[in-house]
Nucleic acid binder design. Sequence first.
RNA 1: GAGCCGCUAGCUCAGUCGGUAGAGCAUCUGCCUUUUAAGCAGAGGGUCUCGGGUUCGAUUCCCGGGCGGCUCACCA
Length: 499
Amino acid sequence: MADEEQEQITVRKEKLERIRRLGVEPYPTTCQCTHSLKELREKFAELVKAEREVSVAGRVSTVRSHGKTCFLDLVGGEGRIQVYLRQDNLSDREWELHGLLDIGDIIGVSGTPMVTKTGEETILAKTLIFLTKALRPPPVVKETTDESGKKTLHDAFSDKEARYRQRYLDLMVNPDVRRLFRTRTRIIEEMRSFLDLRGYLEVETPVLQPIYGGASARPFTTYHHALDMNLYLRIADELYLKRLIIGGFNKVYELSKDFRNEGIDRLHYPEFTQLELYEAYSDYNGMMEIFEQLLVHIADTVFATKDFEFDGERFTIQPPFERLSIPEALSGKLGLDVMEASAKDLFSACKRHKLEVEGGWEWEEYFNELVEGLLEPNIKQPTFLVDFPQRLSPLAKPRADDPRLVERFEPFIMGVELGNAFTELNDPVLQRANFTAQESLRAKGDEEAQAMDEDFIVALEYGMPPTGGMGIGVDRLVMVLTDNPQIRETILFPQLRPK
RNA sequence: GAGCCGCUAGCUCAGUCGGUAGAGCAUCUGCCUUUUAAGCAGAGGGUCUCGGGUUCGAUUCCCGGGCGGCUCACCA
């Protein structure tokens, strides 16, 4: 809200002037701390015993003032500590400064660690300095604990719009949100170390691409002045990573953002983080193993458990994950052979199961509806959906025993699609034919159909070894592992329309 | 894009069957040297999301806009 200045801001500005009149700089350049708040708590007992003086800094989160004494809480990093100010322990000037303190200010305190008679670990302050005067009050969130130890938040800063628009406030006052984003970073770190340890090379490929490929989606378009041409923000990294496989890097991965110009909902976000990895002389079975091991690694290192909860239901990361053949599962459910069925058959099957479809669609569109409507929502435990129709998979290699299917899988947990992987198509002639088929879909108005990429075909003609490849939606994996049903909760600064 | 819902104090919310509004926390004043939603006593603070309509009078009713939430659609 643009500011007719609020009373609380005016008052704080006046305090700022009074601080300066005391000869104190409210925004000093340096601060010497002996411990972070987190370290302080970890070593508290020994510091009390040693009667060591410590210096710490943090943001004032609450103040409990009692005349000639004052308790306040400092927070920051992943720590919190109570500070005990006594008039008789401080200089007159410092005591006067304490009266100019507000919630949200950042201060430094030196003093001795002690435990109060209520058992609270506390710094008895000997000096007090301002590090930053806050001119706006943060949201005030308080917490009570009942006899059973159950915590209740009062006036939680919970409005999603406010939390996303001012994520710094969300992080400042909601420790769970800070924890979530630390966990997100830990997951990504462990993805890297898992792959690095297995000899994968992390690479960077173009975000700006002249031809967008590797997935079916509408791109963001931009313009390069010097080259006088349109470029697209990548929708996938796939075709460039495969060029690296052709070049002789046998194991590569890229961990970065892809962009798809589509709607936002609980599972979709236009700029999302994807891990893509490719391994020469592997295949989709190899990718399944890597997926399983990667999840086990993350579960062990980040969460130290294999049991997780999502949206009130439990799942366990315990390989081997179930392999569920889509045609078999669908055929069983519908009582007909879906691979032999006509578009019309699938249409009536959709109708029978009350899926919202219209007549005149392509076979694969009905097929998709059935997979999404009947199969995916029922997957709770980690599961690989396998045996996708070739017509839906222009970059995957057909199965030798049934070329109507490709060697492809999608991992699911709790109904959430976490990725997509296949044995990569390395037959340049077939690849060209698939692109051509996609082009004709595009000509019919399918905006998401893939574009012919002649340069990629040329690369394939030089010979790509048999290769397994996989993409993993990192935001979604974070969602599932942290029990967050909304993808935007896992993204630091979600896009909103300007107010 | 569609449907439903929301927008009131810094924060979380209540309320006005149409007569310009209230609570807790926060803020301000006073008291208080071990508190932890500290306490006690008092005070201030709002173009009730914006525009239009109906009306003597709209924050409240009606229409439209903005922003947001949820669900659905798109995103296989």
